[in-house]
């Protein structure tokens, strides 16, 4: 029984997702070396997200630790037929972060200056510095759809997705009524859905 996949991958190195899939399978059977490898490959990437949401490196560390512990403990529940490994791990990281943010508002928190400056750029300049990092191949469609949104809608999406702002916090940052922000987010998501479905 020829394994075509093995023949193909002899030519090309495995993608990050392929490698992570294997590592998650090994984590499911408690191979700790696999988690160490997974950490090496993905911790900085996941930290990029977590740090921006938490706003401070101290808190990001706590969240990242919980993330990898949850990845380890939950690896046996990961279903390769349902999602890509990075998507699964990203969801864990973001959910951990949002869980931590549950009890905090930005005002009460001490935030790292570089992250704050980044969020100000989003708020004031109307686009995210992170937009430029949306991948040309995997993200082209998404980028196109985001660019069709009104500026205000883009602000709101970026501030919530990347920086963990609640709609109330977005309203404060953009000096707008909360109700208005709610409708920006609502419309933005609807339009994204329609655009991406095409």
């Amino acid at each position: 029984m020829t394994n075509k996949r093995d023949a193909d991958s002899a030519q090309e190195p495995p993608s990050l997702n392929e490698t992570c899939g294997q590592l998650l399978a090994r984590c499911a059977i408690k191979d700790q070396a696999a988690l160490a490898e997974l950490y090496k490959l993905t911790s900085a990437k996941l930290n990029g997200l977590v740090l921006r949401m938490m706003g401070s490196r101290d808190r990001a560390n706590d969240v990242l630790q919980e993330t990898f512990v949850q990845i380890w403990r939950g690896a046996s529940t990961y279903r390769p037929d349902l999602s890509q490994p990075m998507t699964w791990m990203t969801a864990i990281a973001r959910n951990r972060a949002l869980d931590h943010l549950r009890h905090e508002s930005r005002r009460g928190r001490i935030l790292d200056e570089d992250i704050e400056l980044e969020t100000l750029a989003v708020a004031d300049q109307g686009s995210s510095p992170l937009e430029q990092f949306i991948s040309e191949d995997t993200g082209a469609r998404l980028r196109e759809c985001i660019q069709r949104l009104a500026q205000s809608q883009q602000h709101a999406i970026f501030l919530t997705y990347f920086y963990g702002y609640t709609r109330e916090e977005v309203a404060t940052r953009l000096n707008t009524p909360t109700g208005t922000v709610k409708s920006w987010v609502h419309r933005a998501l609807q339009r994204l859905e329609e655009c991406l479905a095409r």
């Binding site: 990075m86 998404l142 997705y161 990347f162």
Partner: peptide
Amino acid sequence: QDHLQPLADAAPAETPD
């Protein structure tokens, strides 16, 4: 999650502690 994954991937990596 699949739709927005390119956004997640866009966040620049930051070395953890």
